[in-house]
Simulated assay, not measured.
Amino acid sequence: MTNPGPVIRRLELGLELRRMREAAGVEPKEIAELLRWDVSKVSKLENGARTISAAELDRIAERCGIDHDRTERVHQLAKEARKRGSYGRVQDWARSYVGMESVASELLIHYGDMIPGIMQTKAYAEALLAQAISVRQEDVGRIADSRVARRARLTSENPPELSVILGEPAIRGVVGGGEVMKEQLETLLELARLKHVTLQVLPLADWAHPSLDSSFTIISLAEPVKTILYLEGLTNADYLAGSQHLKSYTLVFNRLRVAALSEHASAALIRDAIETLP
């Protein structure tokens, strides 16, 4: 069996720590006070978005009355969670996302004005990254290569179910010049032909929809069974697993599916965009 990697171990660790705390009847606020943390830090730990030191883990285990054997198992989990994954050159704050994406069973992605990383060509990625304020110019090529490597999973033996809803600006906006954009759009059409990929476009002609100015990704994992909402900004990212967040964003995604063009009409719009490129 292959090592699931530190991102999955962080998720497993968070789930285990939550089970320990709830079984002991301990509130998140008590853990925060015990470790001199903010309560939000406890939430991030239990959602798999951060790690914990061995000393901090010992204090939680003692407070929750955990026996020696279980404490040792959790320590091993935490040790593996603290390792760095080998997901290529990416921004530090996006590393967890790339790790989860690499083992996701399903991805629901909505982007309004750009192509998501897992579908990008190298030239398109380089053109975007060259403008990013959080990326050093010397890292542009390596990060672009890592995005191409991520795309390879879509044609692997065990790809995720991928549903993507793009705004028409992501299709019509020219990134890197006509030739770069043509290659990118032709790649989109190739990916859309895969049986596990669904690609739809929200048309500008009927632009009012429930996710204006908000791009997001819903990541489903099979092991451990968990769903994470990923929101990315210019210099950081949020990972949310609360039921209220997931319910709201899943509802929005389903409404976007209805509002967007069909797969056939979306492909026709992309072909039209290719023909009108400079």
Rank of each mutant, 00 (worst) to 15 (best):
T2S: 13
T2I: 13
P4W: 00
G14N: 02
G14F: 00
L17Y: 00
M20Q: 14
A23D: 15
A23H: 12
E27Y: 07
E27P: 01
K29C: 00
R36I: 14
R36T: 15
W37P: 05
S40Q: 10
K41M: 05
L45E: 00
L45R: 00
L45H: 02
A49E: 06
A49I: 07
T51C: 07
A54E: 13
E56Y: 04
R59H: 07
I60S: 05
R63W: 02
C64A: 12
I66Q: 12
D67L: 07
D69Y: 00
D69I: 09
T71V: 10
E72Q: 15
E72D: 14
R73V: 09
K79R: 12
K79H: 06
A81G: 03
Y87S: 01
G88K: 04
Q91D: 12
A94N: 14
S96G: 13
M100Q: 11
M100T: 11
S102D: 05
S105N: 11
E106C: 08
L107Q: 08
I109C: 11
H110D: 08
G112L: 05
I115K: 07
I115D: 08
M119D: 04
E126I: 11
E126P: 02
A127E: 01
L129F: 02
L129K: 07
V140L: 05
R147M: 05
R147I: 05
R147T: 00
R150H: 05
R153I: 09
N158A: 14
P160F: 02
L162R: 09
A170C: 01
G173E: 09
G173R: 14
V174P: 01
G177M: 07
G177P: 05
V180G: 04
M181P: 04
K182G: 13
Q184F: 04
L185P: 03
L189N: 11
E190R: 15
R193A: 15
H196C: 06
T198I: 08
P203N: 04
A205M: 07
A208D: 13
L212Q: 07
S215A: 15
S215V: 07
I219V: 15
K226Y: 11
I228D: 04
Y230E: 09
L231V: 12
E232A: 09
G233S: 13
T235C: 11
N236P: 00
A237S: 09
Y239R: 07
A241K: 01
A241C: 08
G242E: 14
Q244P: 00
Q244T: 14
H245W: 01
L246K: 09
Y249K: 07
V252E: 09
V252R: 15
R257N: 08
V258F: 03
A265K: 14
A267G: 12
A268S: 12
I270H: 05
L277I: 09
